[in-house]
Amino acid sequence: MNDRLAVRKTYKLYVNGAFPRSESGRTYEVTDSRGHFLANAARASRKDARDAVVAARGAFGKWSGMTAYNRGQVLYRVAEVMEGRHTQFCAEVEAGEGLSGSKARAAVDAAIDRWVWYAGWTDKLGAVLGGSNPVAGPYFDFSIPEPTGVVAVLAPQQSSLLGLVSVLAPVLAAGNTAVVVTSKQRPLPAVTLGEVLATSDVPGGVVNLLTGDAEELGPWLAEHADVDGIDLTGAPAGRAMELEREAAGTVKRVVRPSATEPDWSTDPGLSRITPFLETKTVWHPIGV
């Protein structure tokens, strides 16, 4: 019997590449599926959300300006580093979601594989979604996909890791930066994912993870003038319409939630990449 007393982790936010506590000083108790204490998570405030948006905007130029090949390698690196923490993720998912060991393992496996899937997309989007346009005149005309900018993501409430990766990775693969509000009741795998991101060559500020309440933070992000798009997948029940209305004030791109949380084990296709891509069309005369 091992009588060593474990060193517990302080679960904090992940903003601009660092792990701050909430500026508000607030925390909330996180329990496992049977109600046993797991940790006190930071409860992010409006100010934390705004700081995260500033960080995401600051990181956008660098992340979107990388070559697609480079971005793909960084996302693949996330999968590599996650694999090394496989056991830890399984334990956190099992405790938080109340899954059996094998189901938790399947969720972690799928989450890692999802990074691999999206890592391989970065340098194909231009070819699949762009092209040249045969205009009726002496012009070379081409269209290319470009990232929308800063995307706020209300992560799924149920699937705390696979669901989170399934909404975050496509936003990044497209070249956007993200401000994520994690599952409220099950935030711990997200914080651990932040530790993975911090050590995977993802530049600071590209992903910002806020543990706390989407009900509280959602409206500030939906109306924020420097947020270009919002994924409402994890919006609190009955609040999606209100958040979509807020988002209309700055013409944000909005992903509406489905009636029930999607089955994250299914093939995601391009459905979560394209909502946060813009199409740019460039014309130039042809002549000598």
């Binding site: 005309d141 199409t279 740019k280 069309t281 014309w283 130039h284």
Partner: peptide
């Protein structure tokens, strides 16, 4: 969304 280089205000159904 549309950038015209050395031209401007060109439109086409394919574009």
């Amino acid at each position: 969304g549309v950038v015209w280089a050395n031209t401007f205000n060109k439109f086409d159904p394919t574009s």
